[in-house]
Design a protein around this nucleic acid. Structure first.
Lengths: 179, 179
DNA sequence: GGCACTTGTTTGCGCCCGCAACTATTGTAG
DNA sequence: CTACAATAGTTGCGGGCGCAAACAAGTGCC
């Protein structure tokens, strides 16, 4: 419980001993509430991904595979340019190529050249892929509820929604600015 | 914005068309608030890890390396059994072995056999490792504040703290029960 | 004390994925 | 029209990491 604070104060004390300035550049160290939030978040995300992965593996999918199917299913024509799909998944171009390789092997996704631009390949959800998504989605949602959403109060859910919406927007703005 | 809902309703409609039952097994689909929270969270964690990784790379560290140094620094004697360290990091035994390989090569961490149990190796923070942590920590905290904590209200910080504390506790209890 | 059983760590293998290099188009000047 | 830049995608390479097997060492039971 207070290990998080010990952690920070340990390094902080060391920093204090070596630094001539009284505190960090401009923002300062995390206060107890901030530290609790950050540590709980950091300690949760990895195991949370792991349990979701374990649950979805029942359908022969990885978390990443599932996310591909979801993104394609969101499109009216069930297809998406590789680069757009990569951006939505936060994946590098090469990473997306390999991931699609696996899905294409299993006939869950197809590749087709775009008629508009001969550079682009479209990833297209196959009927099999859509059927598998439809089958897996309720179980996935159930898994999310059991391990995450279902543990929270309405107030916490709303706060997480507004908080991470801001975080996501800031990250998107930052990477847009970098381009 | 409403893509999250479209996403879910798309798959949900497909499921409805194929299922004879009126809804998911017992819990049901995510309502709008829950969906916003889940999607914002899922869309944030990967890019958030990426920016933190980019910031910490200034010190020649990966996020995972940094976490090793932190966990060791939390211990009074700056050492930890491999298996305990692996558990704290959510890493498999083999994963931890390789990660330590890198840190040992850079003299940030040392290995020493435990005097109590000749099976166990202790990972020990070297003076260089501790010095690097002390140097990097304020910048890391600043990065966390700029990309995450600093964007949130006090209410959101408290809610995230209590929410993920519960999530983490449930995940730990679950994996303890599995052993 | 000996023999099974558990625990702690490392290694072989394979998968995932990012980076840099390369190819194929398309867009833009001149 | 041609040359150069920008964009889309794939491939070679290397690093990170999980799983299963191997091995070492401790524990329990007779």
């Amino acid at each position: 419980m207070c290990a998080q604070l010990l952690r920070s104060t340990t390094a902080y004390a060391g920093h204090m001993a070596r630094s001539s300035k009284p505190a960090a550049p401009e923002t300062g160290w995390l206060d107890p509430d901030e530290m609790v939030a950050w540590r709980a978040y950091i300690d949760s995300i990895t195991p949370l991904q792991h349990v979701l992965e374990a649950d979805i593996s029942e359908f022969g999918l990885t978390n990443g595979d599932y996310e591909v199917l979801v993104r394609l299913s969101e499109q009216p024509d069930h297809r998406l340019r590789m680069c757009d799909l990569a951006a939505r998944l936060g994946l590098s171009p090469s990473g997306l190529t390999r991931r699609l390789d696996g899905l294409v092997r299993n006939d869950l996704v197809g590749r087709e050249p775009s008629p508009d631009d001969r550079r682009v390949m479209l990833a297209v959800l196959t009927p099999e892929g859509y059927a598998l998504l439809v089958e897996a989605a309720p179980h996935h949602v159930d898994s999310v509820r059991r391990h995450f959403i279902g543990l929270l109060t309405r107030r916490e859910i709303e706060a997480i929604g507004s908080a991470f919406t801001k975080v996501r927007a800031a990250l998107l703005a930052e990477q847009d600015a970098a381009s």
